[in-house]
Each structure stands twice: as C-alpha cells, then as structure tokens.
Amino acid sequence: MRRLAFVFALFATSAAQAATCGNDSGGFSRWKQEFAQEAAAAGVGQRGLQALAAANYSTSTISADRNQRGVRYALNDFIRIRLGSLDSFASQARQRKNANAAFFASLEQAYGVPSGILLAIWGMETGFGRTMGNTPVVDSITTVAYDCRRASFFTPHALAALVMVDRGMLTNGQRGAAHGELGHTQFLPGNALQYGVDANGDGRVDLYSTADALASTANFLRQKGWQPGQPYQEGTRNFRVLNEWNAATVYQQAIALSAVRIDG
C-alpha cells in the first residue's frame, strides 16, 4: 500500500514530465520508452519494465473504449439482461455459498461484509469466474494510459500493474477485461495493489484465485466505509458504499436485491 501511495503521489507531482499521449498506435513505442523512465523513478523493477517493453497496443481495448454507449437500463431490464432473473441468479450464488460456507463465514467475520454482497458482485462481474476477459492486462492498461482521452486516470493503474508484475501478482500474458480490469471481481490494478489480500496464505495476492479475490473485495468495501451488521438496501449508508464499487445506481440496486435472496 505504501508503494501504491508513492506511485500515485509521483504521478501527481510530475505531470509536466509525463510521457506523451497519443490517439492511435503511431506513438505507442515512443510513449513506452518515456513511460519506462517514469516507471523506473516510481520504483518499478526489472520484471515490470520488461513487461512494459513487451506490451502491445491493444486495438480491441481502443475499440471498446471508443464505442461505449452509456446505455441506461431500467432496473428490471438490467436484471433480465445481466442476471436472467433474481431468483435464478441467487440460486447459482447459494450453491457456491453452500459449497464453501466456512470460507464465506470467515470473510463476514473478518470484514463484516455479508456473503450475499460478495457473491452478487462475483456473479455480476464474471459469472462466478467464467468470463474474466480476453485481453492481456498489461497491454490493455498501458494502451488506455497512453491514449489521450483518459491518460491521467489510467496512468497510475498502469504503474500499479507493472508493480504487480514485479511482485508476482500478475504475469505478462495474464488476461483481463478491456480496460485492465482483472480477476474474479475485476479490480483495476491500482485497487488490486492497494486492497489485495492473500487469503489462501500462499505468500502472494492473486486476484485470479477465488479466495484472494473475494477477500480483497470484502477488504475494499470495508475500507470504503462498509458498516458490519447494518442494512444495505437503497437509502442506507452501506448502499452508498456500493457506489465505490460501481457508480451505476441500477448496478448497486441489483447487488443489494440479489444479496437479500442469496443470504435469505
């Protein structure tokens, strides 16, 4: 966590020296050379720098970013499209809860986050780990850090991804979603580095491990202000914490409604 704070602070204080962004693949190689200097100054080691040097401009990432429609769904439509139905989704989640009841109980004891909330997020993000993305994380996160549209937002996450490579939390070819989201619950690299938990005790944080990913998700919510034992339906303090996970109100509503059925 100290390393991530340093990475973000370094970027904030050195914006004038930031690597040159671009709007197509033409300047990506030059940007990588410039960004390597920033990364080295931020403490990124040899493995992270090698991953940066090997990164490819991700045309699929740019296509996904350029073609976002910002479609707004009514809650019932969102549930139908994303979950099928609340009852069928909750049934799938309860099967996973019942298969590992002690683990979910331990997370609630440690972080105060109900298993229904964690299972709802897991299921909504990746279908309980079935679809974690097909784009190499280092490629996608460096591509959006290079792209001029939102370079300031994604650059700290690109630095964090390289630190993760250094620490063995991420491999060069590990795949995730289009904007660098990774693992079972789709953390951005900066959040993975800051809130990641080694729940299975193997000595590293691996968001592609179910145990680490769900513990990290619980830790994220607790650190963002989740109140153990308190309600989480719309209008409550805990419901507002869900905004830290996803800013779409309909997404937050679906999580809360699903969790009631899962834990009920």
Rank of each mutant, 00 (worst) to 15 (best):
K97F: 10
E108C: 03
Y111C: 00
A120I: 04
D65W: 02
G112Y: 07
A55P: 03
N100M: 08
R72I: 15
Q109S: 15
V113E: 02
R66E: 11
Q109K: 15
S58Q: 10
A64M: 02
A55W: 01
N100V: 01
N76E: 15
D87A: 15
G84D: 15
R80I: 12
A102R: 11
A90G: 06
L118R: 10
S91W: 05
S58F: 08
I62A: 02
G112K: 05
T61Q: 10
F78C: 09
R82K: 15
D65R: 03
I81S: 06
K97W: 06
R94I: 02
L75W: 10
L75V: 14
F104T: 09
A93P: 02
A110L: 09
A55F: 01
N56V: 10
L118Y: 11
S63V: 02
S88I: 13
A102W: 05
G123V: 08
L119H: 01
N67F: 05
A90L: 01
N98S: 15
L83M: 15
A99I: 00
W122G: 01
A55G: 06
R69W: 00
T61S: 11
Q95T: 13
A101N: 01
R96D: 04
D87G: 10
A74H: 11
K97L: 15
L119F: 08
A102G: 09
N56R: 14
A99L: 04
P114L: 01
T61E: 04
Q95N: 12
A55T: 04
R96S: 04
S85H: 11
A74M: 06
Q95P: 00
A74T: 13
Y73N: 02
K97A: 09
I62W: 00
R69P: 01
F78L: 11
T59D: 12
G112W: 04
D77N: 13
I121F: 04
N56W: 00
Y73P: 03
V113D: 01
A74C: 01
A93M: 06
A55M: 04
G84R: 12
I79M: 08
T61K: 03
V113K: 03
S106G: 10
Y57Q: 02
D87C: 11
G112H: 07
S91P: 00
A120E: 06
Q92C: 07
S115C: 08
F103K: 02
V71D: 12
V113H: 02
F104Y: 13
N98V: 07
A105P: 06
L83G: 03
D65S: 07
A90Q: 05
I117Q: 06
G112M: 01
Y111T: 08
R72H: 12
N98Y: 10
F89M: 12
